[in-house]
């Protein structure tokens, strides 16, 4: 297993699966401005997927391209964290998930801009502006709804409680990460945790929300060992045309 390929799949699968989830909101959001913003976020994430998985395919050198990786791998070959494959829930949970992810994504990309691999540094540079904007929006929404009405507060607290156990996986470190950190290609995820906690603590304080005490973390997504039941359904939908009509071009 090539660590670079593995790492690039982790990046690209996160953006692909989250982009898919966010796109499910299209036409169904609570406010028109949110519909536009969510479609825009999904669009950015799909564009980022093309870059990450495109590079993954290139590194792999097995004749696959980004579409083949996205549309023909089965669930166990996906390397996204569990957080992004969870169903959307209500709008509050969707925005909470976005904020928890964006806060990490933004930190990682800042580090990756200094990657010793120029191709990775270039993607990080290109995508970090988009992600900074995603974070600004998701953060504002979490704060607005957390510190809004009694109902919106309760829903946002419930969302944070439900999702927080999926945050820890973002900071897991394994042999892949060690190899990449050693080569200066990518940061050791564990090293980002303090900066992340500082951010999230600030956001949640402003949102008048309480971060759960437990650091318990569900994992199994970024190494593909045990995804949730939800990923299979997501892939069934996303990959259906390519699998029903193999060999067609679209």
């Amino acid at each position: 297993m090539d660590p670079a390929f593995e790492f690039l799949c982790r990046m690209g699968d996160n953006t692909l699966v989250l982009g898919h989830r966010v796109s499910e909101w299209c036409g169904h959001s609570p406010v028109l401005e949110e519909d536009i913003a969510l479609a825009n976020t999904a669009l950015d994430l799909i564009g980022q997927t093309q870059l990450w998985l495109g590079l993954a395919a290139e590194v792999e050198g097995a004749g696959r391209d980004a579409d083949a990786l996205a549309m023909t791998r089965d669930a166990w070959d996906f390397r996204n964290v569990l957080l992004v494959e969870l169903p959307n829930g209500d709008f509050g949970r969707t925005m909470m998930r976005q904020c928890l992810f964006d806060a990490w994504h933004d930190l990682v990309l800042a580090e990756l801009r200094d990657s010793t691999d120029d191709r990775i540094a270039a993607i990080a540079d290109k995508t970090s502006r988009e992600v900074a904007y995603h974070l600004e929006r998701s953060r504002d929404t979490v704060i607005g709804l957390g510190d809004g009405t009694e109902e919106s507060h309760a829903r946002m607290q419930a969302a944070l409680d439900r999702l927080y156990p999926y945050v820890g996986e973002l900071f897991e470190t394994d042999a892949v990460d060690a190899a990449l950190a050693e080569a200066g290609i990518a940061p050791d995820p564990g090293n980002l945790r303090d900066a992340y906690d500082a951010r999230i603590t600030g956001i949640m304080a402003e949102a008048t929300l309480t971060i759960p005490d437990s650091r318990f973390a569900h994992k199994g997504g970024r190494d593909g060992v045990r995804h949730t039941e939800h990923l299979g359904h997501l892939l069934t939908e996303m990959q259906w045309l390519q699998r029903a009509y193999p060999g067609a071009t679209w």
Partner: peptide, 23 residues
């Protein structure tokens, strides 16, 4: 059809289009 678009490129184009309509 956004979640079932056959390629990443088609998905992105369709998303952009639907976003335009909201605009």
């Amino acid at each position: 059809w956004i979640t079932r678009a056959p390629t990443l490129e088609r998905k992105a184009i369709l998303l952009a289009k639907v976003q335009d309509e909201a605009g």
